[in-house]
Design a protein around this nucleic acid. Sequence first.
DNA 1: CTCTTGACGCACA
DNA 2: GTGTGCGCCAAGA
Length: 105
Amino acid sequence: MESGFFQQVYEIVQKIPVGCVATYGQIARLCGNPRASRAVGYALHVNPLPGKIPCHRVVNRFGGLAPAFAFGGADVQRNLLTAEGVSFSDEYTVALDKHLWDPFG
DNA sequence: CTCTTGACGCACA
DNA sequence: GTGTGCGCCAAGA
């Protein structure tokens, strides 16, 4: 564990199960900094491990996809989530009510 | 070295 | 109910 805030974010994001999505605030909270949602977004922005960090499962508190998805674009992100069985409330808004990740189990 | 920005979220006026 | 600012962490100019 590299005792780094970013590293914490990466590990948590990797724990998001398939067919589920998590919000930046949720991850920031799990990291120990409920207000570090910005840092969470930046951590995924740099996305050093696109093969291990499913950034496409991370959305803002509204469920809206990121405007600058690291893998390719919000359009790709929406495609990946749909392929995993995730439903969308809008063109670029995930149905959090149905797929919001539950860190408590 | 210092200031600002950046895939966000919430509190306060 | 709406509008604005602040807080967190890190990197870029």
